[in-house]
Design a protein around this nucleic acid. Structure first.
Lengths: 204, 204
DNA sequence: AGCCCTATTGAATGCTCGTTCAAGAACCGG
DNA sequence: CCGGTTCTTGAACGAGCATTCAATAGGGCT
């Protein structure tokens, strides 16, 4: 179908991997050039500067959220609540695959870039919003299995919090257990909410 | 009582602020020197290199956990469960004080340092462990107000997860609301646990 | 005062970084 | 095959970085 990827795409793909593996500041333009087998001029012909590469990377994460992350995680899982934990299971797999060195690319960049350009910060926020939006779809689909008084937005953000906190601790301790216990606590939280809704279905 | 702080202490204090404000990689030795009004030789007389400054900073956080963070937060709060939320309230205050740019120094360093020296990683882990240990004291003091089957270690780590995730999202969106909703979800979690224990006090 | 050890000075070093740009190659419509 | 545009080359540049070190100052002891 499509031929060899163009220069821009090659740069973005290489930068995604490098920023994820080493962080933004610790990734040099030279790193990107050597991985893509390009010369400096080619990169600067496509991007005005390093920060624009970062922006393209964040846009790629935003645009590929479902294709690269959510849809594969949800494949074969129909129950909306289980979809939430299927997404978390995908992160567990990533942690194991990287010998507990995995870090969420967005979360790591969000904490690394202390004085980020507004454009960059907006893209970080948009990535979080997209992720939370995917969880929101599940919560909406769960309908009245959740108590009517529950703040679904807060709950969806809480799922992201659980993922980010679990990933952070698992990596720092080099032990998936920290991620697993976080997910388990979240599971208890959902179980209690679902039980409460089942107990008194019409109460606020 | 004590006179002017010695060179080592001045460096560590300046580095704590700078690493927190700009991150480790983005803080130069020159930054530390200009803030402390020292010369390069004085710093290298005390520390072999930049990483050793980081190690001293992490040791200072570890050793000052109660004095600088926990004890002030718990002052006037006796109920063990409320102490947990008093600690979180202190982070909320820090977020507001910094116009929603606050980042947990340990969490930020943990995500920034991708290929950290084992000594550094251990110190990051120890800082997390100390924080979780403070929460564990509360959970132990809560005694049978919590259901007997609850994994207290997991629950204490979950409190840290809530703090880190809330701080991360609040800073990215520049909005305390993200932190507040996370704490509120954790409050619901505790309320449900406490209610369950009160309902059937002797059940596992 | 003389001595020794510790502490400080600050210029110099070598390296890496992001970025530039003049020169040349490749491509394409006519 | 020409003329113009787009893309690529890779050396060069200046700034900033962590680190070094010979020279100098200070402080305590006899």
């Amino acid at each position: 179908m499509s031929g060899a990827p163009d220069v821009r795409t090659r740069i973005v793909m290489a930068a995604m991997e490098l920023f994820w593996a080493k962080g933004y500041n610790s990734t040099s333009i030279a790193d990107i050039l050597s991985r893509t087998q390009l010369n400096a001029g080619s990169l600067y012909h496509v991007f005005p500067g390093k920060q624009d590469v970062l922006i393209a990377v964040l846009e790629a994460y935003r645009d590929g959220l479902y294709e690269n992350l959510v849809d594969p995680a949800w494949e074969g899982v129909d129950d909306p609540v289980e979809r939430i934990f299927a997404l978390l299971a995908r992160y567990r797999w990533l942690i194991l695959e990287t010998d507990c060195t995995y870090g969420c690319p967005i979360g790591s960049l969000a904490l690394e870039l202390h004085e980020a350009d507004p454009v960059v910060r907006d893209l970080l926020a948009v990535n979080f919003t997209g992720w939370v939006g995917a969880i929101m779809k599940c919560l909406d689909a769960a309908g009245d299995r959740l108590p009517t008084g529950v703040d679904k937005q807060a709950l969806a953000e809480f799922v992201l919090t659980t993922m980010e906190g679990g990933v952070m601790q698992a990596r720092t301790h080099r032990d998936v257990g920290y991620f697993d216990r976080g997910v388990s606590a979240l599971r208890d939280h959902f179980d209690m909410l679902l039980a409460r809704a089942a107990r008194r279905p019409e109460t606020v």
